[in-house]
């Protein structure tokens, strides 16, 4: 999107645009891991490089900052800044995960491990897409945002349990404890969990916003 158009956007629109970009970035990461599972390293690297090299977010941040300081919003200004910062945190965690993944070309130990990782990725995908939907709703429907955030929390719990199971399996494989494969896979699982944890935290914050703003009869 050209800079001029970005400048014309409203605060809410810039936030949603940033959320969409971040979700797109994270979907690329998930797809990259899918390519890694089938050992298509070329596509894997292509997707991760897209995440690392895409510097559009700097422009979005600048546009948001200039808008928010000039904004006449008196009530929700601080909360909107926090929402934007939380999206940025998700984006940063995604970038860190992408950079770590590019350090080595791993081969998964067996089919079971691949299936388990795929299962975790499905859960992460649901969490991140739901988060995008919850963030999109804050402007128009906080109740919906609250409900979706609750769903994120439930999905996150499933992901967490699955990740513990997978980590436990990893430690029980017959492989050298300090091997690159072991370290890489451990970092990969932890990176996915960190991303999901941050999404869950964000969902908690969105629920706080809903209870702060909504007045019930």
């Amino acid at each position: 999107m050209p800079k001029k158009e970005l400048k014309k956007m409203k605060i809410d629109e810039i936030t949603q645009y940033f959320m969409n970009k971040t979700t797109k970035q994270n979907m690329k990461i998930i797809r990259a891991i899918d390519y890694l599972i089938i050992e298509n390293f070329e596509e894997f690297e292509k997707d991760l490089k897209y995440v690392i090299e895409n510097k559009k977010e700097e422009e979005i941040k600048r546009a948001f900052e200039s808008k928010i300081w000039k904004s006449k919003m008196m009530f929700s200004k601080a909360d909107r800044v926090l929402v934007f910062n939380r999206i940025n945190k998700i984006r940063d965690l995604g970038e860190i995960l992408a950079r770590k993944m590019l350090l080595y070309r791993v081969v998964f130990p067996d089919e079971q491990f691949k299936n388990d990782i795929k299962e975790i990725l499905e859960l992460l995908k649901t969490v991140l897409l739901d988060l995008a939907s919850a963030v999109k709703s804050i402007g128009k429907d906080l109740e919906h945002s609250y409900e979706v955030s609750q769903k994120i929390k439930n999905e996150h719990l499933k992901l967490r349990n699955k990740a513990w199971e997978l980590l436990s399996n990893l430690y029980n494989y017959e492989m050298d404890f300090l091997s690159r494969t072991f370290l890489y896979l451990k970092d990969l699982i932890e990176g996915i969990v960190f991303l999901a944890d941050e999404a869950e935290n964000f969902a908690g914050y969105l629920q706080f916003l809903a209870t702060k703003y909504l007045i019930f009869e």
Partner: peptide
């Protein structure tokens, strides 16, 4: 009135 306001945009406008 207040319980019919659903989103942050609507609430912000009303509070203004």
């Amino acid at each position: 009135f207040l319980s019919h306001l659903k989103g942050m945009n609507q609430i912000e406008k009303s509070e203004r």
